[in-house]
């Protein structure tokens, strides 16, 4: 039994399509109220994991539990607490957006609760139109609204930003952050890492069906170096002087000083000015999620099976 702060627990999940192993010993946990990003290259197994969590997929071995209740294609009780959008939104062309929300909301859901999510997603203008007239972005919004309409404890979103315009993107971010503050847990996969970066507390990185990294965002940021990149009148001389004075330089063509707690910009300027080196430009470079992730995936030791 998991501790009460864990809402989702995936243990030793294995899945093969024929001889191809798509998931290998996948284990991770998701803490209640956290926003967790599930990232990895195309075909890494993100959707497969999400489908397995939703009881849509048979798996060869392993255990999944939501709030302590086991989930499998034949055991769906815990699904009452889950909302999801997987791959692309499933939409009946002959129903209106409102009818979709009514159809998939629990019995006795008040109209106000349905309209609440409609307003938040700014879908009021077309919610009573038949879905066959919807654009890609409108369908995507409806798919997200369907995942949220029952106010679930755990929300699983697969590429939720697909097809959304910048405003809708920002709205979605606000909704997710608000709900998370109120205790809703999110598991989100996305290729748009710059968007994901603004949202997630924790990160699960998967490559070739295996978990290669599971940490909080804060840990990932701390683990990556911050650099001071200088453009000078004489780069090679500047590099020598900085090294002699105990600064650590990153392996680079540029003058890239690794920032530490005691690294002070005025000291560096004084030091270089004293040697008659002009500083033309200074840049703080903080490695973003994309850089960290690409590095992680490059270094990972997962072998193709």
């Amino acid at each position: 039994m998991a501790d009460t702060d864990t809402i989702l627990q995936v243990e030793h999940l294995n899945k093969s399509f024929g001889s191809k192993k798509v998931l290998q010993d996948v284990s991770f946990t998701v803490q209640r109220g956290h926003i967790v990003g599930l990232v990895g290259p195309n075909g890494a197994g993100k959707s497969t994991i999400m489908k397995a969590i939703l009881g849509l997929f048979n798996y060869s071995s392993g255990h999944i539990s939501i709030d302590g209740e086991a989930v499998s294609p034949t055991s769906h009780k815990a699904m009452d607490k889950v909302g999801a959008l997987i791959e692309y939104p499933g939409i009946y062309p002959f129903l209106t957006g409102y009818q979709h929300l009514k159809l998939f909301s629990k019995d006795g859901t008040p109209k106000a609760q349905i309209m609440d999510i409609v307003d938040k997603m700014k879908m009021g203008g077309y919610i009573n139109r038949k879905a066959k007239t919807y654009s890609l972005g409108m369908k995507q919004k409806l798919g997200i609204a369907l995942a949220l309409v029952n106010r679930p404890d755990l929300v699983i979103l697969d590429e939720p930003m697909n097809g959304l315009d910048p405003q809708a993107n920002k709205d979605l971010r606000t909704i997710i952050l608000d709900l998370a503050k109120q205790g809703t847990t999110f598991l989100i996969s996305s290729h748009i890492l710059s968007e994901l970066e603004k949202l997630v507390d924790d990160l699960v990185v998967i490559d070739k069906g295996q978990i290669v990294y599971q940490e909080s965002m804060a840990a990932l940021e701390n683990g990556s170096a911050k650099l001071l990149i200088l453009k000078t009148s004489n780069d090679s001389k500047a590099k020598d002087i900085l090294t002699q004075n105990g600064y650590e330089l990153s392996q680079s063509d540029q003058v890239a000083v690794v920032e530490k707690a005691d690294t002070k910009m005025p000291d560096i300027i004084k030091l270089l000015s004293a040697s008659d080196i002009d500083i033309d430009d200074v840049q703080h470079v903080h490695s973003d999620l994309e850089t960290s992730l690409l590095k992680l995936l490059q270094n990972d030791k997962v072998k193709e099976s």
């Binding site: 939703l54 769906h76 009780k77 999801a84 791959e87 692309y88 499933g90 009946y92 062309p93």
Partner: peptide, 19 residues
Amino acid sequence: AMEFQYGTIKEVLYRKYYR
């Protein structure tokens, strides 16, 4: 077949009900 065609089969199935 429409559930597979429209992709709604996922929404229909991932709920508390048994298949």
